[in-house]
Nucleic acid binder design. Sequence first.
DNA 1: CTGGTACATTGACAATCGTCAAGAAATTTA
DNA 2: TAAATTTCTTGACGATTGTCAATGTACCAG
Lengths: 191, 191
Amino acid sequence: MISALIKHLEVHTTLNEEEKTYLKNNVPIERFKKGHLLLSEGEISKAFYFIIKGSVRLFYKVGIEEKTAYFYFEDSFVSAYESFTKQSASKQYLETLEASEMAIISFETAYELLQLFPKFEFLARVIMEQELIVYQDIISAFVTQNAEKRYVQLLETNHRLIQRIPQHQLASFLGVAPETLSRIRKRIFSK
Amino acid sequence: MISALIKHLEVHTTLNEEEKTYLKNNVPIERFKKGHLLLSEGEISKAFYFIIKGSVRLFYKVGIEEKTAYFYFEDSFVSAYESFTKQSASKQYLETLEASEMAIISFETAYELLQLFPKFEFLARVIMEQELIVYQDIISAFVTQNAEKRYVQLLETNHRLIQRIPQHQLASFLGVAPETLSRIRKRIFSK
DNA sequence: CTGGTACATTGACAATCGTCAAGAAATTTA
DNA sequence: TAAATTTCTTGACGATTGTCAATGTACCAG
């Protein structure tokens, strides 16, 4: 359903029929199984994604260990910005956390959108501004709080979303061993 | 010297005389003493900054403790994005780390720039893209490495810049106590 | 130049976390 | 549905870190 993407964009501006038609004709929707790798280390990102349904995990590999940097859910854009914008080898992995439905904006389509419709230059900026706020928030949480407080904060602000994330991946995101998250949970829920 | 800002923008595009004149007339340059607070918690950010000379620290206060999130140096933009774009109360502090010279782009000027010159919509997007890459890198470092490795990496990639940062602030950025950074240094340099 | 203040180092000790290992629970898939 | 695999929990122990306190050093202001 491309309408989810259009609706999301129309929060910031109004799209005319030409623009909507272009999106419908050039932005394919695809379904992926749980655990599908959208992007692997060393690859060049050929697209960025808008999540219509499902979720995505962004992670790095350090040796054999997977270190999760962030989770994305419905109505979010997902991208390995460096690999996508510079068309360079990715250091990141993008993987579906659940069976997911996504709008796929290829590098060429993104480029053409910006060329054809100045409005998308504006949209891209606004969306990136919002992304930056999200990123500053992530960093803020890393810097100002320990693992336990960050977990409590996540429970309070994103209770439903957290239930869709396996605990060991959440532990990785919080920067602690899975055993430690288990003990944090025990402490919290025994109160 | 506004030319530093113009030069930085002209990496991505070419500015015509009208645009340059607008910048010269509307973007004031100010000098600040070391330790000057550009923005405090609770305030609404009225401007973003381009560092011509000097450095800035972005930090949060947790109780009486200051937690440093990032350092910015010459030829970088600095902004509390959330407070600036939403014109909302800031959770962040911005402070000059050294005596600094900065270009000040007020909220009104930024708005006008985007209205008057479509080129600045493009520039804003490109700059945001770069910022996003920087932020994904920061998060990547937090997630994939411990304090010691991050310190070593900083030494390798930003040796000169690091020397301008007091160690206890660097410790705060690395997420360890000042004593621990001191011991990390002892370990590294005894090799 | 000098005294004072802030900053950095070092040691000791307690608290916390990671690791290893074992068993329980949940989820996947044949 | 049952077996197999993955995930989660729990305990024990060693390693690392934070805290407190003392000392040494660097920097700034008068």
